[in-house]
């Protein structure tokens, strides 16, 4: 569960990124977080992954209090999250299997567990047949599916997808969003940050719109409309 209560965040340069944001995402939800550039979306993601601390208010993520979390506990908070980025962030010199396995090895999984789990994840994202390929041999959509498999492989409670379709054509974007919806249907909470109006409207999930550091709209089955954000 993710909970932000009256959260404010001001950076050292004086920029006020968030101004009293309150939101709650329950287990098993699929949420779109939309908003124009500089609206505070990235700041919310950084707060959830405990890269930064709030200036004011309270942030709880999967039972961890981000305000008071010890530095040594941050890795354990992050193990409850799976993060997917717009630019995939795959390791070019490793093949698909090893890119996914890398996330398991980083949290101390045994080779036996890796051998068992990675093929299952690759099957889930439809890339079993490309396990030995390197990222540059894959299309953008396929690379993003590898990134999703990597985010999922450690059984996170929440997947945070930061503009996951930003570098993809509409067809591949739809594939990725469908995959995230499928993952959500298996019980994982999904928070997707996006600008893709068509996709948001097509999936008709809960939509939280943020603008100028404030939540301006939060609707179940919402749409990406001009009332929600300026974009």
């Amino acid at each position: 569960m993710v909970r932000l209560v009256d959260v404010c965040k001001a950076y050292d340069n004086g920029t006020k990124a968030l101004r009293g944001v309150t939101m709650r995402i329950d287990d098993g939800e699929f949420v779109f977080l939309i908003g124009p550039s500089g609206s505070g979306k990235s700041t919310i993601i950084k707060l959830l992954t405990s890269e930064i601390k709030p200036s004011d208010g309270k942030v709880m993520v999967n039972g961890y209090n981000v305000n008071t979390i010890k530095e040594s506990s941050i890795p354990y908070l992050r193990r409850t999250l799976g993060v997917v980025f717009q630019d995939f962030r795959l390791i070019e010199k490793k093949n698909v299997f090893d890119n996914v396995a890398f996330a398991m090895r980083a949290v101390g999984c045994s080779p036996k567990e890796v051998k068992k789990k990675v093929p299952y994840m690759l099957e889930l994202v439809g890339l079993s047949h490309k396990a030995r390929r390197r990222p540059f041999e894959l299309s953008g959509g396929e690379q993003q599916r590898v990134a999703i498999a990597r985010a999922l492989v450690n059984n996170p409670l929440v997947i945070i997808a930061d503009e996951p379709t930003g570098n993809l054509d509409p067809e591949r974007s739809l594939e990725i969003m469908t995959l995230l919806e499928r993952i959500n249907s298996l019980g994982t909470t999904v928070l997707t940050v996006t600008h893709e109006k068509a996709l948001v409207n097509r999936f008709a999930k809960r939509v939280i719109a943020i603008d100028g550091g404030r939540i301006v709209s939060d609707k179940q089955g919402g749409y990406y409309s001009n009332e929600s954000t300026r974009n």
Partner: peptide, 14 residues
């Protein structure tokens, strides 16, 4: 640095 960034993101300890 990219590998380290990913390790930190997925929850590797320092």
């Amino acid at each position: 640095r990219e590998e380290i960034g990913i390790q930190r993101m997925v929850g590797a300890t320092k």
